[in-house]
Simulated scan of single mutants.
Amino acid sequence: MQYIAFDSHKRYTYAVVEDPGGNRIMEQRIEHRKGELATFLAHYEPHSPVALETIGSWYWIVDEIEAADMEPKLVNARRAKMMLCSSKKTDRLDARGMNTLQRAGTLPTVWIPPGELRDIRELFRTRMVFKQQVTRLKNRILSCFSKYGISFDETTSDAFNVKGRAAVQSACSMLPVHTKESVMQLLAQLDGTNRAIAELEARMREVGSQTPEVQLLQTIPGIGPILSHVIAYEIGDIRRFASARHLASYAGTTPSVHASGGKVRYGHAPADVNHYLQWAFVEAANCIALRHTFLKARHVAQLYARLRATKGHGVAVGAVARHLAEAAYWVLTTKSPYKEPQHARVNTVVSSKKG
């Protein structure tokens, strides 16, 4: 067996091949052309591990590694750099460092989803991008009207439902000529984006099977058909998480902690999390926040209301998102529907008896 490490960039990969004793067999820069990496790997022992950092374009590189009958190892780049403790950074040193960690058996790797799963994920991820674009377009449109003192609060609760859209179209005549043209273009862009979302969702329903995992996730408050598919496909195999806390951390629903000198400070979630899972759980938590008065008998609504009163909306939504992430772990691990936490059920019973 040999140890191979790829320090990959947009246009090239720097490869280092070493034997089990740490002796370098080959160092080479490989230009990015289809088949070039597989051809390079074909000269070395099959089934050798190939370490590759988690860069943005790793999908096709993993495919080439597998095509060469090698074993891809996707590396957590931030953790690897911390373990190497090097103040210098070059392609050569990075690749050699990954091989050092491979030989020591301490290479920090992350899960590589199967090719089919990677492909399907793009539907849900693209929908998320379009939904964010819809929010930006709506905010921009309302901002254009607000600059001229035009509001739709008294006309409708939503300026972009059927009634609200009619009011928006009518109010365009009150805008200056160039601002009106800008708003019309924004509305056209909004309509096109909504059509693209509808087409994506139709395709998602075709390819996104109603698996037992998806059905179980839909028993969790705030998680519907779309979010259940996003969460299921982003999690993949639940067995790769050691505990509910690990899944919550991976999903970016736990804050960073700075503890020193007896003082503890909580900050934002770390940057190296699954941002798609983070969005899904926060989106579900916001759905609960909007309807918490109608869900007051549920634990998630009580959690949100209690924390909002003392910590504010943002902290409350974050806490609910973490609860949902941990609940997702348990329903997928135990293969049973979501159940209200025991203490929440007791509180509800006690409150009803007092009433």
Results as ranks from 00 to 15, higher is better:
residue 259 A to F: 04
residue 259 A to R: 08
residue 260 S to G: 09
residue 260 S to P: 06
residue 263 K to V: 09
residue 264 V to G: 01
residue 265 R to E: 09
residue 266 Y to I: 04
residue 268 H to Q: 10
residue 269 A to V: 08
residue 269 A to M: 06
residue 270 P to D: 00
residue 271 A to I: 01
residue 272 D to R: 05
residue 275 H to Y: 00
residue 276 Y to E: 02
residue 278 Q to H: 00
residue 278 Q to V: 01
residue 279 W to L: 00
residue 281 F to R: 02
residue 282 V to G: 00
residue 282 V to K: 03
residue 285 A to H: 03
residue 285 A to Q: 03
residue 286 N to T: 02
residue 288 I to G: 01
residue 289 A to E: 10
residue 292 H to W: 08
residue 292 H to L: 04
residue 295 L to E: 02
residue 297 A to I: 03
residue 298 R to H: 11
residue 299 H to L: 11
residue 300 V to E: 13
residue 301 A to P: 08
residue 301 A to D: 06
residue 302 Q to P: 04
residue 304 Y to D: 04
residue 305 A to L: 08
residue 305 A to C: 08
residue 306 R to Y: 08
residue 307 L to P: 05
residue 307 L to V: 06
residue 307 L to K: 12
residue 308 R to Q: 12
residue 308 R to I: 05
residue 311 K to F: 05
residue 313 H to Y: 15
residue 313 H to D: 15
residue 314 G to S: 14
residue 317 V to M: 14
residue 319 A to D: 06
residue 322 R to P: 08
residue 323 H to M: 15
residue 324 L to W: 13
residue 325 A to L: 15
residue 326 E to S: 15
residue 331 V to E: 14
residue 331 V to T: 14
residue 332 L to Y: 00
residue 332 L to M: 02
residue 333 T to I: 13
residue 336 S to C: 12
residue 338 Y to H: 12
residue 339 K to A: 11
residue 340 E to F: 11
residue 341 P to M: 02
residue 343 H to V: 03
residue 344 A to S: 07
residue 345 R to A: 06
residue 345 R to Y: 05
residue 346 V to Y: 10
residue 346 V to D: 07
residue 346 V to P: 05
residue 347 N to G: 07
residue 349 V to S: 14
